[in-house]
Design a protein around this nucleic acid. Sequence first.
RNA 1: GGGCCGGUAGCUCAGUCGGUAGAGCAGCAGACUUUUAAUCUGUUGGUCGAGGGUUCGAUUCCCUCCCGGCUCACCA
Length: 587
Amino acid sequence: MLPEAAMLHDNSLMRQRRDKIKAASDAGEVAFPNDFTPTWTSADCYRWFLEPGRQNTFLAIAAGEPLNPALAPTSGSVVLPSPRVSVAGRILAINVKGKVAFLRIRDRTSPELPLLRKQDDDLREAQGLERRGSDATTFQLYFSREACPEVFDRLLKATPGAAWDGPLLDVGDIIGAHGMLFRTRTGEPSIWVVGQGDTPAMRRLTKSVRPLPDKFHGLQDKELRFRQRYVDLIVNDEAREVFRRRSQITKGVRHFLDERGYVEVETPMMHPVLGGAAARPFRSHHNALDMPLYLRIAPELYLKRLVVGGIDRVYEINRNFRNEGLSQRHNPEFTMLEFYRAYATYEDLMVEVETLIEGLARDVTGGTTVPWGKTADGSPRLIGLQAPFARVRIRDGLVQWGGLDPREIDDETVLRAKAVALGVHIDDHAPLGKVQLELFEAVAEPHLVQPTFVIDYPAVTSPLARRNDARPDYVDRFELFIGGIEISNAFSELNDSEDQYHRFLAQLEQKQKGDEETMEMDLDYIRALEYGMPPAAGCGIGIDRLTMLLTNQDSIREVILFPHMRPEHLSADVAVSEPDAPDQGAV
RNA sequence: GGGCCGGUAGCUCAGUCGGUAGAGCAGCAGACUUUUAAUCUGUUGGUCGAGGGUUCGAUUCCCUCCCGGCUCACCA
């Protein structure tokens, strides 16, 4: 039985928490209110503490109000005026200590807190105070029974005789609180929670019926982390950081391209004709039109139609779908940036790509040297992302890493023998160019850790790329490898409609030989080219893989919020429905 | 699809050379007026992934299946 299956059933912890909802309802409260407006975020609060004179322990009193005797300063405390603040968030820890209590909450600004805490530490150090030294992503609320006895007894402590004999709050609940800013004896920026008039010190806004995972170890099971990403995001700081960076990356890409005059577009994700890449598609069907459709494997042909239409600089960031195997680096749907630039060559795009990636590394990681996995001795492997990147020709790579003599590069017999010796499988019907490419990938990719543009691609493997003027069997194309994985693929675009037509024909021939990943003839695309596409170059960048690189994650599933999984209910159904099965005897 | 490893409390894990299981956290009861993985005392909680076999007895051994992780192959 899957752990999830068990969780579909109620358990004692959940029953207990549901009873607490009922206790609140019975007391006349709205169980799930939506009338609380936080006025400050946790980051707002932190920044308040960064102001001069607020680094050491102090007690805050509400500005303009008399000192509340319940908030009597401990001996030696400085008293500072504080604004009254309302904050809201999810409780990540409850710590009741006699007649005081501490809650740690998280809100939408929590990712900013580690940096703010560091700034705070720097200020404290400059004044001869101890660094707090914490990278906590939660913000602290302080309660004293004296300041808010009704809240304290009802929400945080057992109250004998109450509808529910115990604290009504649990870790995981979402609360709204009101109070003043102060620093505890240990210097922790906190809110002294205290009500004001009709404003209660604290209210529960949402009850969490399911208990959260272990507060220290978090959620470790990868399957549960991916299936229940919401829980992963609640309890695992690293997961939140990965997706914060992913958002920065896509924003950074858009900013970079927008600044250079590119126009963002959205083209069809359902294609009547398969094209733009070599891959197996997902098939669908339109009922009203009674026609087959493919989920797109690449946006390329539509984007180039737009270049024909006069959008000389165009890009799209969106999903591609490929009906192929799953792996650490492959998800059936993945996010691709493609951009096209008229009057540019693939060499121009190399500069554009290395500038983009260097800039993203700076924006997202703060530098151009990023850690990527570990070296053989266990220390972090470092990748330098400062431009320019290295460039290597496929034939040079075959010589350098494949141990081939330069004269053997065009000898298919020698290459195939080499492939067999290395245990690399290459189709018998593959032409020389494809043999070269596959052999190169086998021998060179492990060496392509530092960013490297691979160039000199054989024309047969690139049916949409422009031929090299001097050597028509080759195309003006590059692939960018970083960390041993392919990050980008780009080429000068073929805009000769007649050549394009014949290359599509060649694809059809490949298909008849049994290749399942060929493109189809796209006559409308040929027609578009016949109107004339300006000379152009285009580039694709795998956003998921780029995110892996800039977050040091070795699996694509760590950078996709909801990676593809087997359907969960197959196993859960068995476990859950068994007691009610109508014909249990007939097995 | 092949190979290797795994599934034990809500979570993180230990354990049982075959005699129906433990810890920490969470929960519950209590103590504690500045904690931050708080601490201390007591305590609840388990169809040991599912089914079958061997056995007096299976969570443990065997078989099948389900689910997952890693890995190889195809692919970006």
